[in-house]
Design a protein around this nucleic acid. Structure first.
Length: 638
RNA sequence: GCCCUUGUAGCUCAGCUGGUAGAGCAAUUGAUUUGUAAUCAAUAGGUCCGCGGUUCGAAUCCGUGCGGGGGCACCA
C-alpha cells in the first residue's frame, strides 16, 4: 500500500505497487503523455519501475533538465542501435550525454563517413518509428561478462568487469537490441522524438588514454522540440560567424602560413591592436607599482637545467645549437630570466614586494593537433609579471593582482568573471607547512575578492597553489585567461635571496601572474566576443573618411589630416568607387565610424557620421566631432 | 602526437568516371562623379601544397611529406 508523496506536498495512496506511468496518470492525462522518467526518493528511475514502499516521487518531462538528458541518453542508445544494424561487427563502447548533446564511441575498422551519418540518421528515425519497448533486466556479473564476450563486445565485458562487486549490472533492451547501461531510460524508442542530428565523426582514445586504441566517436545533438534544435543550430552558426580566424582575415589583422605553423604574421592593423593593448596594460601596471623589465629570448641550457624546465618541460622547448656546439633554449617561460634580474645586485626586505613585469615572447613546441588560430599557438607574448615578496605579503599582493585583473577585464568589456582555486597536487615540492601557509593566504585573497569561485582539489602546480581567472564572453562561452600562482620552488632553485631585518639571508616567495596569459589568445577572444566590432578605442582603424565624389577629395583629405592630428586613427578613401560601395566595404571590415563628406559638409565645415551597424546619419561640425571623439579614441585610463 | 577530413588565382569556390584549368569578388586600365551596404566594360592573373609512383597522358589514381579543419590526447 505505497503512499506516494509528490513535490507539491500532495499524497496519493495506492492499494498495490505502482509504477511511474500510473502515478502520472493519476495526476493528469497530459502529464502521463509527457512523462519521461521519474525520481523515487531522489534516485532517477525508469517510469516502469515499480514502487512498493512509501516514497517521494517526482515526474520529469522534456522541460526538465533530467528529462532532456534522458532524451539525449536514449538518442545515444538509438544511435548505437542504428550503427549496429547498418554495420554489423561494429563494437559499442560508451555513449554518454554531454553539454547540448551526446556521443557514442565505436570500434570498427572502416571509418564512418559523412555519408554514413546520413544513413545512420535515417535508420535512427526508423527505430523511433518502430517504437520499440524498453525493458530493464538485472544480470549476474559473470553471466553478463560471458554474454558480451560471446557476442564479440570486448569493451562492454571490460566495463562490466570493472563494476564494483555488489553493484547491479543492469541491461537495457530496446526490442532485441540491448546494452549494458545504468539507465534510466524512456519507456520506448518513440519517446525521444526526432529532434536530433548527428553532427560529426571524430577519433577518440578508448578510456581517454593516448596509449589505447583509437575509437570512432559520433557526436550528435538531441532536443525536446524542433524549435530547440533549430535554436541550437543557430547558436553554432553564430559562433562560426564570430570565428576570429575568419574575421582576422576579413579585417586584415593577421595571417598564418606554412613556414611557421602556430606563429602569427601580424599585419599593420592587427599589430596596432596588439600595441594598443600593451600600451594600455603598461599604463595600468605602472600605476599599480610594477617595474617593467625585459629578458633574453635565448638562454643557456644550464639555466633551464637549474630551473627544472629542462627536465619537466623539455619536450616542449625549442633548442638551438650554435656553430661552436653550445646548447641554448628559446624561452618557453619568462620566470627564470626574471629571477636572474632579481638576483642581480643585493636585495633587501625593504625592496619587497618587488613587482617586475615583462611582455615576454615565449616559444613552446605544442603538439600539432593542439594548434588553433590565435587561441593556441607556438609563439606568444605573455603579459607576465613576477612578484617577489614575503610569505606574509601573499594575501595582500594576491588581492592587488585580482583587483588589477578585474579592472582591466572590465575596461575590455568582460564583467562576468569566475575564479578557480587549485590547491596542492599529489606530486609536489616544498614542505607541507609552507603549503599550508600559502594555500591559506591565497584562499583568503580569493574569498576577499567576493567573486564566485570553485575549488579544484589537487590541481595546483607542483610548485604552488594557484588561482585562474575565467571570463565569460558575449555568447556565454568561458575562457580561462589570467592566472596567479604561488611559487615555493623556483626562487630557491635559482638562488634568489634578500637580506632581512636581522641581517640574515632569506628566500623570497615568488608570485607568477599573467593578466590575459597570452596577448595573441586574448586578441582572439576579443575578436570573437565583439564579433570583430571592437570598442572604438581598440579599433585598429577608427575612422574612414569618404568623399561623396571626386569633387570633395580635398575636403576629405583635409579633415582626415585634422582627425589624425588629434591621435585618432583615420584614413581617407579616394578610390574611384561610389558611396554605396565604400560604405559596404568599410562596414564589412568593421570600421566603427564612417565620415561622409560632400557639398553639404564642405559648406558647413562639418562631417556626417555613420556608425557601424547603424544607418542613421549624424551631422556635426568638425570641431564638435574632434572634441567628442578625441578622448573616446584613447584607452580608458583614469 | 593519434583518428577522420581537406589543400585549385589575393579571397570564396566549381572542375562527374584521368585528356595540362574555370566563375564571382579583389587587382590593373578605361568610362562614370555618384548622398548612406556591390556602377559598367576591358585586361592581366595559376609549379592545381611539395616530392615520388602508376599511366601514352595526372588537379583528378596510389604512396609519402608539409599545412589547414573537426575531434581525442596535451595545455607543464
Amino acid at each position: 500500500m505505497p503512499n506516494i508523496k509528490l513535490p507539491d506536498g500532495k499524497n496519493i495512496n495506492f492499494s498495490k505497487k505502482v509504477n511511474g506511468l500510473e502515478i502520472a496518470e493519476k495526476i493528469s492525462k497530459s502529464l502521463a503523455k509527457e512523462a519521461l522518467i521519474m525520481s523515487v526518493n531522489n534516485d532517477l528511475k525508469d517510469l516502469s519501475f515499480e514502487i512498493e514502499k512509501d516514497s517521494s516521487v517526482k515526474i520529469f518531462t522534456s522541460k526538465d533538465k533530467e528529462g532532456l538528458e534522458t532524451i539525449r541518453h536514449d538518442t545515444a542508445h538509438i544511435l548505437a542501435m542504428a550503427v549496429q544494424e547498418l554495420f554489423p561487427g561494429t563494437q559499442v563502447t560508451i555513449g554518454p550525454t554531454i553539454e547540448d548533446g551526446f556521443y557514442y564511441d565505436f570500434s570498427r575498422k572502416e571509418p564512418f563517413t559523412q555519408g554514413d551519418l546520413k544513413k545512420i540518421e535515417e535508420k535512427m528515425s526508423e527505430i523511433v518509428d518502430r517504437n520499440e519497448t524498453t525493458r530493464r533486466e538485472v544480470w549476474n556479473r559473470d553471466k553478463a561478462i560471458l554474454h558480451f564476450k560471446k557476442i564479440g563486445e570486448k569493451y562492454k565485458s571490460e566495463i562490466i568487469n570493472e563494476i564494483p562487486e555488489g553493484e547491479e549490472v543492469s541491461i537495457y533492451f530496446h526490442g532485441k537490441w540491448h546494452d549494458l547501461c545504468r539507465g534510466p531510460h524512456l519507456t520506448s524508442t518513440g519517446k525521444i522524438g526526432k529532434n536530433f542530428k548527428l553532427t560529426k565523426v571524430a577519433g577518440a582514445y578508448w578510456r581517454g588514454n593516448s596509449n589505447n586504441e583509437m575509437l570512432q566517436r559520433i557526436y550528435g545533438t538531441s532536443w525536446a522540440s524542433k524549435k530547440d534544435l533549430e535554436n541550437y543550430i543557430k547558436r553554432l552558426e553564430e559562433a562560426e560567424k564570430r570565428d576570429h580566424r575568419k574575421l582576422g582575415k576579413e579585417m586584415d589583422l593577421f595571417h598564418f602560413r606554412e613556414e611557421s605553423p602556430g606563429s602569427v604574421f601580424w599585419h599593420e592593423k592587427g599589430w596596432n591592436l596588439f600595441q594598443k593593448l600593451i600600451d594600455y596594460m603598461r599604463s595600468k601596471q605602472k600605476a599599480a607599482g610594477y617595474k617593467e623589465i625585459n629578458t633574453p629570448e635565448i638562454l643557456d641550457r644550464s639555466l633551464w637545467e637549474k630551473s627544472g624546465h629542462w627536465e619537466k618541460f623539455g619536450e616542449h622547448m625549442y633548442t638551438s645549437t650554435t656553430p661552436d656546439d653550445k646548447v641554448f633554449a628559446i624561452k618557453p617561460m619568462n620566470c627564470p630570466g626574471c629571477v636572474q634580474v632579481f638576483n642581480q645586485g643585493l636585495k633587501s626586505y625593504r625592496d619587497l614586494p618587488l613587482k617586475m613585469s615583462e611582455f615576454g615572447k615565449v616559444h613552446r613546441y605544442e603538439p600539432s593537433g593542439a594548434l588553433h588560430g590565435l587561441l593556441r599557438v607556438r609563439a606568444f607574448t605573455q603579459d607576465d609579471a613576477h612578484i617577489f615578496c614575503t610569505e606574509d605579503q601573499i594575501t595582500e599582493e594576491s588581492l592587488s593582482v585580482t583587483n588589477l585583473i578585474l579592472g582591466i577585464y572590465k575596461d575590455l568589456g568582460f564583467e562576468n568573471i569566475i575564479l578557480k582555486y587549485s590547491d596542492r597536487p599529489k606530486v609536489r615540492v616544498g614542505e607541507d607547512k609552507v603549503w599550508d601557509k600559502s594555500e591559506a593566504a591565497l584562499l583568503k585573497a580569493v574569498k576577499a575578492s567576493k567573486l564566485e569561485y570553485s575549488v579544484n582539489k589537487g590541481e595546483g602546480a607542483f610548485y604552488g597553489p594557484k588561482i585562474e581567472f575565467v571570463l565569460r564572453d558575449a555568447i556565454g562561452r568561458d575562457w580561462q585567461c589570467g592566472t596567479l600562482q604561488v611559487d615555493l620552488n623556483l626562487p630557491e632553485r635559482l638562488g634568489a635571496s634578500y637580506v632581512d631585518k636581522d641581517g640574515s639571508k632569506k628566500v623570497p616567495v615568488m608570485l607568477h601572474r599573467a593578466l590575459f596569459g597570452s596577448l595573441e589568445r586574448f586578441i582572439g577572444i576579443l575578436i570573437e566576443n565583439y564579433s570583430g566590432k571592437l570598442p572604438f578605442w581598440l579599433s585598429p582603424l577608427q575612422v574612414m573618411v569618404i568623399p561623396v565624389s571626386d569633387d570633395f577629395n580635398d575636403y576629405a583629405e583635409k579633415i582626415n589630416k585634422k582627425i589624425s592630428d588629434t591621435g585618432i586613427t583615420s584614413e581617407v578613401d579616394l578610390k574611384n568607387h561610389n558611396l554605396n560601395y565604400k560604405i559596404r566595404e568599410h562596414s564589412m571590415s568593421k570600421v566603427p565610424l564612417l565620415l561622409i563628406c560632400g557639398k553639404k559638409e564642405v559648406d558647413s565645415n562639418s562631417v556626417t557620421i555613420r556608425r557601424l551597424d547603424s544607418n542613421k546619419q549624424e551631422n556635426m561640425e568638425l570641431k564638435t566631432f574632434l572634441k567628442k571623439f578625441a578622448d573616446l579614441s584613447k584607452a580608458p585610463l583614469n
